[in-house]
Amino acid sequence: MRVNCVGAIIFDGSDRLLLVQRGHPPGMGSWSIPGGRLEPGETDEAGLRREVLEETGLRVRVGRLAGTVERPGPGGVTYVIRDYLATVAGGVARAGDDAADVRWCGRADLARLPLTEGLLESLTEWDALPRV
């Protein structure tokens, strides 16, 4: 079974990347970009805005598609994840929903945080890493 998901690549004014620490499986304890499963009939844009707001308290404007990855999930599920660039339109970053923590990260942070599998490689391939 394939499950459609979206993720948001968001930078702040200091060119740091917004990451959330997963509070539930899959990936509990690891750091990733905010996002999650689409609800039935939901567009990528609507789902991305909803997921980012739920996990981080931020409202975003959705930009272009950065890339797509497929990741195996429990019980033979395949997560099809479309990651989009997004910009903050309002709100204050705070952990919510299934996020245990949220933080703005520079390039050095990415090297020392336990990231979700394949995140660093995908961001590198898409030229979507923090510049600082």
Rank of each mutant, 00 (worst) to 15 (best):
114 P>R: 07
88 V>D: 03
72 P>W: 03
92 V>N: 06
109 D>Y: 07
84 Y>V: 03
76 G>F: 13
97 D>L: 10
105 C>F: 12
103 R>Y: 09
74 P>Y: 09
80 V>P: 07
111 A>Q: 14
108 A>D: 13
112 R>P: 05
60 V>T: 03
85 L>G: 06
112 R>Y: 09
92 V>W: 08
115 L>T: 01
82 R>S: 15
97 D>M: 12
95 A>H: 12
82 R>C: 05
81 I>P: 00
116 T>A: 08
78 T>D: 04
59 R>I: 01
114 P>L: 12
74 P>C: 06
118 G>Y: 02
82 R>F: 07
84 Y>Q: 07
112 R>V: 14
69 V>S: 09
70 E>G: 12
96 G>P: 11
100 A>R: 14
83 D>M: 15
74 P>L: 11
110 L>I: 03
106 G>Q: 05
63 G>D: 13
104 W>S: 03
64 R>Y: 14
71 R>N: 08
114 P>E: 10
65 L>N: 04
60 V>Y: 07
112 R>L: 14
64 R>V: 13
91 G>S: 05
62 V>T: 09
73 G>T: 03
113 L>G: 00
63 G>K: 09
67 G>E: 08
115 L>K: 01
89 A>W: 00
90 G>D: 00
98 D>T: 15
95 A>Y: 12
103 R>M: 08
107 R>E: 07
116 T>H: 06
74 P>S: 08
80 V>I: 12
109 D>L: 10
103 R>V: 01
64 R>T: 06
58 L>W: 01
81 I>Q: 02
77 V>S: 10
102 V>I: 07
110 L>Q: 03
81 I>M: 01
58 L>N: 05
73 G>M: 01
74 P>T: 08
74 P>H: 07
68 T>H: 14
99 A>L: 08
75 G>T: 05
107 R>F: 12
92 V>K: 13
84 Y>A: 03
70 E>N: 13
82 R>I: 06
59 R>F: 09
57 G>Y: 09
75 G>A: 09
100 A>M: 06
112 R>Q: 11
95 A>C: 13
103 R>A: 12
57 G>H: 13
96 G>R: 12
69 V>H: 04
62 V>N: 09
106 G>P: 05
95 A>I: 12
77 V>C: 03
64 R>A: 15
99 A>D: 04
59 R>Q: 11
110 L>C: 05
84 Y>R: 08
73 G>N: 06
73 G>V: 08
116 T>G: 11
105 C>R: 05
113 L>Q: 04
108 A>E: 13
87 T>P: 04
112 R>C: 11
82 R>T: 04
113 L>K: 00
80 V>A: 09
63 G>S: 10
87 T>V: 14
57 G>A: 06
112 R>D: 11
66 A>C: 08
79 Y>I: 01
65 L>T: 03
78 T>V: 15
